[in-house]
Design a protein around this nucleic acid. Structure first.
Lengths: 198, 198, 198, 198
DNA sequence: TATGAATGAGGTTTCATTCAT
DNA sequence: AATGAATGAAACCTCATTCAT
C-alpha cells in the first residue's frame, strides 16, 4: 500500500501500472491480487487508510491543548504539516483532486471523513478564538476553507511542480508565513484603524 | 481543443480516450491526427494556448488601472475569476497539478509562462500597495503564493469535489470573502493594536 | 464468426483464445472487438445466428411436401443432415451440450428457438403419419426426442470422437440405418404379430 | 475426485479451477498436488476410474441372465440408467463429448475401454436375440449406436439443458418409452405386414 | 479534408503450479 | 500429510496510431 500510494501520487491512477506497484513493493504482480481484489480496490484502500490516523492524532492534540486559540490554530497547522504535508500521505490531496471525478464514491468518502472532519477540527480553534475575542467574528465555513488553502496548496505543490524542477514554488519555510498571514487576517476589527477598502 | 480541454480536466490525461475527444468535438478519430501529431501534442496545445489570452488581458487591466492598490488587487482577483476560474480554462490548474510529474517539460512551461507571469502581475499590485503604505511591508514571493492560494483552490475545487456532489465546497460568493481576508492580512502593521501572537 | 464457430466447437468456449479466432479469420486480435463487444457476445452471435436459417429451410420443406408421412420424416432427417449435420453448424449441438450450464440464458434461447421449433417440425410429420394410419399412435414428446437422438448423436460424434481417430463411430451411411430403425419403430401395431415383450 | 467429477461435468475442463475442486473437496489447493501431478492428471483419473466399475457390473448382469434377449436388453438399459445415468458418473458422457478433441489420448481410452466394451455387452444381447429369432437380423454396429443413442442422450441432457430450466427435455420417465421404441424397431420382419417405405 | 476499419503493444486480471513451513 | 503465500505465463480487453479510401 505504501508503494501504491507513492505511485498513485506520482503518476495518477490510470498511469500507474499494477506491475510497477508490485515491483516497488518487492513482490510479483500476482501477489497484489492476493490482498486487493483489483486496481480500484487498492486505490480505495490507499485513500481510506491514509489520513484517518493523522486526523485522530490531530483531534487528540486539540483536545489536550491549553494555550490561546492562535497558538492552537498555529499548532494544528504545524502538526498537519509534520504529520501529513511533509509525509508520503501528503500526496493524497493532490491524488484526490486529480481523481475525484473518476471515483465519485471515494471522493465523497474523502470529503465526509477527511475534509469535513478536518474543518471541524480547525473550526473548534476558530470558534474558541472568536468566543475569547482573540479573533474577529466571521463566518465559519468560508473562512476555514480560505485559511487552510495556502498550507494545502503547499502540500499539493510538493507533489506536482516541485519535482519538475520548479523549485521556486512555495518553499516549506513559508509555512510560518502562512500562519502569520492567517493570524493577521483573523485579528479583531477593533484593533485596526480602518476598514478594508474595496 | 475545447473538447480536449473538457475531457482532460474531467478525467485526467491517461483516462481520456482520443475517441471521446473526437466524439465530443463532432469529428472522427482520424481527424484529430490531421491537426495534432498525437495525444501528447494535443495535451501540449491545450495547456499552451489555454491561459495566455487571459494573462494578457490581466496585464492590460493592470496597466490601465488608476485606483488604489487594494482595488487593483481586488479587481485582478475578480477578473481572474471571471475570465479564468469560472470558465472552462479554470480546469487547467487542476489538470496541471494532476499531470505535472508526467509531463515535466509542459509543467515547466506552465510554471514559467503562467505562474511566474501571474505572480509578476499580482506582485505589481502588491509592490504598489507597499510603496504607497496601503499594505504592510512583506516578502513578495511567499505572500503572493499565499494570497492566491484560496482563489486558486476555489477553481480546483470546482473541477474535483464539486461535481461529485460535495457542494459545500466554497461557493462563488466566497470569492469576496477571499478578497476581504487577503486585504485584512495585508493591512499595515501600524493600523493594528498588537503583534500577531504565536 | 465462421472461424469462431469452428474453434468453439473444436475446443470449447473457455479453451478458445480470441487471438486464435482472429488468426483463423485472417484479422488481428483487435478487429474482433470492432464487431463483437467481447468473447461472450461472439459466442452468443455464433449460437443465435447458426441454426435459424437451416430451421427456416426445414419449415419450407415441410410446408411444400406432398408425399407420405414416412417420406416426409425421412426427408426431414436427410435434409437436416445435409444442411446441418454435415456442415460446420453441425458442431453446434456439441457446443451447446458442453456450454449450456455456463451460459444458461443462451441455453434457454437455443432450447426455445431451436430445439422446440425443431420438434414442432418433426412433430408435424409424426402427427400426419398417425392421422393417416401410417404410424402407430404414440405420445408425441418422448417419441420425438427418441427418434431424433440417433441422428443428433451422429452429429455430436463427428465433432468429438471421430476427430480423435475413433473412426468406428457412426459413419454417414448409418443415417439410412437410423431412418430405417425409426420407421420400423413407428410402424402400426396392427401390422405386427405380437406385442413387445419386456 | 468426486468433487472434480462434479465440477468438470458442470463447467467443463478449462472453466474448472483447481481451487474450486479443492474447496468442494474440503481441502486446500496444495493438497490436490499431493495426489495428482496436475490438472490434466486429475482429469485422466476422473475419466479412467469413473465408468469401469459400472461396466463390470453390467458384464456380470449379462453373464448371469437367464431370460429372453428382449428382457436382457431391457435390463441392461435399465441397469445402465440406475448405475450410471442417474448417478454422478452419468455426467461423464457429456464431459467426454465436450473434451474429446482437447484430450485425444483420453478420448481413445474412453472409446476403447468404455464405448467399445459397452457395445460388446449390448451386442451380446442383440446377437442372442437374432440367433433366437426374437429380433430381426441386422448389422450389429450401426444398430447398437442407434439403439443406445436415446438413453445416452437422456444422460447428456440431464447435465446440460435440464439444469438451465429447460425441463421439457427428455424426462426420466421416458426410459421405458426408449425401451419400447427399441424393441419395436428390433421386432422380426416376418411379424410385420409390409416393408418400411422410404 | 475527412473518415473509420484495422492494428498490435500494453494493460488488468486469472489461475495452474511451486515450495517453505 | 497438509497448507497457503507467492509466482508468472497467458488470457481478455483497450486504445493510440495508421492508412486506404
Amino acid at each position: 500500500m505504501s508503494a501504491a500510494l507513492e505511485l498513485f501520487v506520482e503518476r495518477g491512477y490510470a498511469a500507474t501500472r499494477l506491475e510497477d506497484v508490485a515491483a516497488r513493493a518487492g513482490v510479483s504482480k500476482g501477489t497484489v491480487y492476493l490482498y486487493f481484489s483489483g486496481k480500484e480496490a487498492l486505490f480505495q484502500a490507499v485513500i481510506r487508510e491514509g489520513l484517518l490516523p493523522a486526523l485522530e492524532q490531530g483531534e487528540r492534540l486539540a483536545a489536550g491543548h491549553g494555550g490561546s486559540a492562535a497558538q492552537l490554530l498555529a499548532d494544528l497547522l504545524r502538526g498537519w504539516w509534520e504529520l501529513v504535508g511533509a509525509q508520503k500521505v501528503g500526496g493524497l490531496p493532490k491524488l484526490m483532486i486529480a481523481e475525484a471525478r473518476n471515483f465519485p464514491q471515494i471522493a465523497r468518502f474523502y470529503h465526509d471523513e477527511v475534509i469535513v472532519r478536518g474543518h471541524r477540527l480547525l473550526g473548534q480553534a476558530l470558534e474558541l478564538g472568536m468566543a475569547r475575542g482573540e479573533f474577529r467574528r466571521c463566518e465559519l465555513e468560508p473562512t476555514l476553507s480560505i485559511l487552510f488553502a495556502p498550507v494545502l496548496m503547499l502540500a499539493v505543490w510538493r507533489h506536482s511542480f516541485v519535482p519538475c524542477g520548479c523549485t521556486d514554488g512555495p518553499p516549506e519555510a513559508y509555512l510560518e508565513s502562512c500562519i502569520d498571514f492567517i493570524l493577521r487576517a483573523l485579528a479583531p476589527e477593533s484593533a485596526r484603524g480602518g476598514e478594508t477598502p474595496t
